[in-house]
Amino acid sequence: MHQRTPEITIIGGGIVGLSVALGLLQAGRTVQVLDGADGDARASQGNFGLIWGQGKGWNFAPYANWTMDALAAWPAFAQLLQELSGINLALDQSGGYEFFTDVQEMAGFTAEMTQQASHLGNRASYEMLSGDDLRSQLPGLGPKVVGASFSPRDGHLNPLRFLRALRIAVQNAGGRLRTGASVTTISPQPRGGFALTLASAEVLHSDQVVLCAGLGSAPLAGDLGFTTQVKPQLGELLITEKLGVRLPFLSSTIRQVDEGGVQIGGTKADAGIDDRESLRVMSDLARHAVTVLPALADVRVVRAWGALRVMSPDGYPVYAKSAAHPGAFLVTCHSGVTLAPLHASVLADWILNTSPTPDLEAFDECRFALSHAA
C-alpha cells in the first residue's frame, strides 16, 4: 500500500520529536509524526521532569549557552503549550539545588560550575552554599549535607502532563500523529524524498525526514548516511506516596510533583537495553534521600522503575543534516525536557534553513570523526 504523507515526517513521537514537530507546524509546514510501538524504550515516559542548567556544558561552551537559552525560553513555551492544549504543565522555575554529602565531590562540582560560568559570562547565576548556611535556610536538612550549589534559573514540571500537552498541541496545530507506526527502513529516492517502510509493510513517502527516535534511531541512522551511535544509560527512580506538606526545596535528585508525591532519582549506569530496577540501587536512592532530608524516612515508597536515557558518544546533543541524502536530519539528546523550547523554535529554523539560519555546527556529528582523528 502506498500513501502520500505530509512534506515533513518526524520519526519518533516522544518529547524531542513532538517538540520539533510543533516548531515546524508553527512555521507553517505540513507535518506527520510516526510513533513506534508501546513496548519501545521510551525516555519520555520515564524522565525526571527537570528543567536544569547547573553544570551542563561546563567543558563545552556551546552546550552551556544552548541550555541557558532554553531555560530563558521556558515560560513563554509553557504558555504556548497551555493555549494549544488546555493543559497546565505545573512549571516551577523558582530555583534548584545540587546537594553534596562528600567534600571532595562538592569541590569537583564547584570547579565545574566555575568553568561553566566562564562560558556564560554575565548570564551565569549560581551560588555555592555551606551545609550550615543551608540548614539555616531549609528546615529539616540532614546534618551530613556538607553543602550545595543553587541556581535560581532551574526548575521542573509534570513530565507526563508535558508529554500529553505536546501530543495534543501538535494535533491542534494541524499535525498528524500516528501511533503504532514503527519504521523498519528508510529508502532515499532517486528523484528526492524518502520511502519509509513500516513494520506492517505499509510504505509511506515524505519529502523530508527528521529522525528523532531516541534509541530507536540506531538501526535507521545508517539508511540516511548518519554515523552517530547512541547508547542507553539506565536511570532508576523511587516514587513516594502523596504528601500533604510541600518539600522546602527542589533538587536534581529529590523533587516533589505538583500532585504531592516525591520522586527520588539521579542514578546513571551502563546496563545495555535492560531497564529493570534493582534492589541495591533502590536502597541507595532511599538512603540518599533520607540523608538529605531525614523526615523522608517515614514516607512510604509506592512505585519504583528504571528508564533508559539516550546518550550520544560525548553526552551532548546531535543535530545533523545528511550530506549524502539532502532533506534528512538526525536529532538526538538526553535533555529533551530542558531543551524543548529551542527544539520547537530555533531547531525548526535550522531544519527549514530560514534566514538567518542559526549556527548549530558545534552539535554536528562530524565532531566525533574529528575527535577520533585527533
Rank of each mutant, 00 (worst) to 15 (best):
H2E: 06
I8Y: 00
G12R: 02
G14H: 03
I15C: 03
S19F: 08
L25P: 05
A27R: 13
R29Y: 01
G49D: 03
G49S: 04
G57Q: 02
P62E: 06
L80Q: 15
G86N: 14
L91S: 00
L91M: 12
D92P: 01
Y97E: 06
T114A: 13
E127D: 08
Q137C: 07
F150R: 00
L163K: 02
R176S: 05
P190E: 13
G193E: 01
A195P: 11
T197D: 13
A199L: 09
S200C: 14
L204E: 06
L204R: 02
L204W: 00
A213M: 08
P219K: 14
L220Y: 12
A221T: 14
D223R: 03
K231A: 15
L238G: 03
I239V: 15
F249D: 02
G260T: 07
I264L: 10
E277I: 10
M282C: 13
A286H: 09
A289K: 04
P294I: 11
A297R: 15
V299P: 01
V302Q: 09
L308D: 01
P313E: 11
A323N: 08
P326W: 08
L330F: 08
L330W: 04
T332H: 02
V337H: 02
T338A: 05
S345N: 11
V346F: 07
V346R: 01
N353H: 15
S355W: 13
T357I: 13
D359F: 07
R367F: 00
L370M: 12
A374E: 12
